[in-house]
Amino acid sequence: MPDTISPPRPALPPLTVVASATIRRHVGLVASVVRNRQLLVQLSIREIESHFRGSLLGKVWAVVVPLFMLGLYTLVFSAILHVKWPGEPRSELRVALLYFAGLILSNFFTECINRAPVLFIGNVSFIKKVVFPLEILAWVAVAGALFRAGISACVLIVYYLIIEGLPPVSAIAIPAIVAPLVLMVAGLTWIFAAIGVFVRDLRHAMMVVMPAMMFLSPIFFPLSAVPEKIRFIFYINPLTYPVEAVRNALFFGMWPNWLAIACYAGAAWFIAWAGLTIFTKLRTGFADVI
C-alpha cells in the first residue's frame, strides 16, 4: 500500500500476550482493586440497587428486615425465654441488643460465604464472552453485604441510643475490628468461589457449615461461658474474634487488644493471599467447565 496516499496511522500499541499456556498473570490484591475501581464502583452500585429492585417496598425492605428481626429477638429471647446474659443483671432488651450486634456480623459473613460457590457460575457471560477481572466479583458481593450490614447497624445504633444511651468511647475502635473481617471474608469468598466452579457440592455444603459457624461462635453467649475443653472449636471460627471484640467494645467499654487485632489482621491477609492464589490457579479452567 503506497504510503503517500493514505494518511499516517496512529501507532499501534505493542503486541501483548493475551492468552498463553505458560504465562499466568497473578492477581495482586491492591493492584486489582485500583486498576478496576471504575468497574468495582459501578457493579457495587448496581448490586446494592438491584437487591430490592422490582419489589413493591423497594429500599424500605433494607430497613424493615433488620427492624423486624430485632423485634423478633426481643420477643423470643426476652419476653418468652427470659434469657440472661451470664455475669449480668437481667435485662431483656439489652440481651436482644447483644445478640443483634453479633448477628449483624454473622449475617454479613454468611451472606457472602453462602453466595461464594455460585458467584462465578451465575455470571457465565463474564467468563466466556468478555475479558473480565473476575476477582472483582468477590468485592462486589462483599460491598453489597456490607451495605446491608451497615443499615442493620444503623437500626442497632438507634435502638441502642434509646435503650442504653450513649455508647462507650471504646466503640470507635469497631471499624478497626471490622476491617480485617471484611478482608477475611473476601479471601474466603475467592477460595470457595473458585473451588465452587468445579465442585458443585460446595453450595450444598455451605447450607450446613454456615449455621454451624453461627452457633459455634460467641453470638448468643460470651466466650467465657464455653467450657474449656471445646473452646478450641470457637478459636478456629473466624467469626469468634470480631464478634467478641465488637461486643466488648460496644457494650462493655473494653478496648480491643491491639495484639489480637494484629494477629487477626495477619490471618485475614494470609487468607486473602491464599484466596487470590487459588483463584489465579483455577481461573484458567473456568471457561472449560462452565
Binding site: P13, T16, V18, A19, A21, I23
Partner: peptide, 14 residues
Amino acid sequence: SGTLTPTSGTVRIA
C-alpha cells in the same frame, strides 16, 4: 479475545 486459555502456544494482540 482472551477469554480462553490455550493448552499450548501463545496469542498476542496489539
